[in-house]
Measured scan of single mutants.
Amino acid sequence: MAEQVALSRTQVCGILREELFQGDAFHQSDTHIFIIMGASGDLAKKKIYPTIWWLFRDGLLPENTFIVGYARSRLTVADIRKQSEPFFKATPEEKLKLEDFFARNSYVAGQYDDAASYQRLNSHMNALHLGSQANRLFYLALPPTVYEAVTKNIHESCMSQIGWNRIIVEKPFGRDLQSSDRLSNHISSLFREDQIYRIDHYLGKEMVQNLMVLRFANRIFGPIWNRDNIACVILTFKEPFGTEGRGGYFDEFGIIRDVMQNHLLQMLCLVAMEKPASTNSDDVRDEKVKVLKCISEVQANNVVLGQYVGNPDGEGEATKGYLDDPTVPRGSTTATFAAVVLYVENERWDGVPFILRCGKALNERKAEVRLQFHDVAGDIFHQQCKRNELVIRVQPNEAVYTKMMTKKPGMFFNPEESELDLTYGNRYKNVKLPDAYERLILDVFCGSQMHFVRSDELREAWRIFTPLLHQIELEKPKPIPYIYGSRGPTEADELMKRVGFQYEGTYKWVNP
């Protein structure tokens, strides 16, 4: 592979701008107003304001973009700056750019259920340069409990009458099928589907988006991507930290609602779906819905739930269990780990287990898709061969690698495990991989909904998990304890083995 010439960040961002501006969906010269509902909250200060700053800094926003914060707290732009700027990672050389960014910011205080507050917000936006005809993007960085009041008031008082209007809704989209349907029906009564952007930030990850290209742009994968060759698929999300004093919020939802029903299920769809007619948003989402419709409700015998306990040999936070978090209700049975087996009941995947695993306070930070292939028929190497695996590593250190057998150097035919490896950090030294939120917010500006969740996708996802969630809430089974920093409950490994996964433990990928 030829040595790549190092590029400056300015040059890299210039390439990104060229890609972005050559499309006809990006209205570079139009006025846009980006409204952050819930501007005083954690999500706004840690993710949304920093993301908008990065896009502005790199010249990736339309030229005439204004940012308006809205929340109940009586704040000023200076207050917003004070709480969000520490997350910007701005350099001293960017000081003038930073001043320009905050000059485009404003803030309006108001209630979430008060019509007069929204009329005041609308008047404020109209007073901005060309504000009355601007395109408006409303980001709901809010708890779902206020979605209905907020969307109703936005629709009645704050819509642009000339430009387009788009609304970005953060997960969780309800707690179960019934609450999700209620919320979807409410929002759909106010906005068209092409105006609604239900954001799952995992769909903005580079390697998640790469799944489609790997599958449908490489001839070698087509013939082997089926039940005849693939023994099982494992989708993993692991965090090495616990709730760390923020367990009160987590306890309301648990690990299945927080990660599995959305992030992991979306990745499953991209692995299992048929080739779409095109890369058009609805063509892709149509195929994802077909996959979900082929999955039956989760069966309790295919589920393992766990909850982390303190590690007596650990240090600091590792010595504390979930129930030691003062914000967690006493005696909570909320799971911090889950392993679930699903089956896609169609011709391509009949009988292939899709194993979804996620948890907190585990032994490493990792998100990946792992396809394990069947054993080689007619073994001539005296059971020395391990199964081939194709691994798409989402985070950290984005990579695609194939675990395969090669001859060990020497005189004899002794096979050993090795890999074919594409590590993004080595291959793409001159490429700026956008943060997931950067990519998705740019998608909203461009009107691309491919990486957002459609209402029928959402409904099918909740259909699969709601009976299990209701059973857990009714019966309150005690989750299996696992030690902070471990791989999780051993019962999860036993479940995976029972459905056909072979864990060798003899080879570990190392970032080159």
Rank of each mutant, 00 (worst) to 15 (best):
A6G: 12
L7H: 15
Q11L: 05
L16E: 10
R17S: 15
E18D: 05
E19H: 15
L20S: 12
L20P: 13
F21C: 13
F21K: 14
G23C: 12
G23E: 14
F26E: 12
T31E: 15
I33G: 03
I35N: 05
I35E: 02
I35T: 10
I36L: 07
I36R: 02
A39Q: 02
L43G: 01
K47H: 09
I48C: 04
Y49Q: 05
E63Q: 12
F66G: 04
Y70T: 11
Y70L: 15
Y70A: 11
A78M: 13
K82C: 10
A90Q: 10
T91H: 12
E93K: 07
L98H: 03
L98T: 05
E99P: 07
F102S: 03
V108G: 02
D113M: 12
D114T: 04
N122L: 15
N122K: 10
N122M: 14
H124Y: 10
M125T: 10
M125E: 01
M125K: 01
N126P: 02
N126Y: 09
A127G: 07
A127E: 12
L130M: 10
G131D: 13
N135V: 09
Y139S: 11
A141C: 08
T145Y: 11
S160A: 11
Q161C: 15
G163A: 13
V169S: 03
K171E: 01
L177T: 06
S179T: 15
R182W: 12
L183S: 09
H186G: 06
I187N: 03
S189A: 13
S189F: 07
F191D: 00
E193Y: 00
D194G: 08
Y202E: 04
V208G: 01
Q209S: 08
Q209N: 10
L214C: 08
F216L: 00
F216T: 04
A217M: 09
A217D: 03
N218M: 00
R219D: 06
W225A: 00
N226I: 04
N229G: 04
I230D: 00
A231P: 04
I234R: 08
L235R: 02
K238F: 02
F241W: 11
G242D: 15
E244W: 09
R246C: 00
R246I: 05
G247N: 07
G248Q: 09
Y249W: 02
E252Q: 15
E252I: 05
F253K: 03
I256F: 11
R257Y: 00
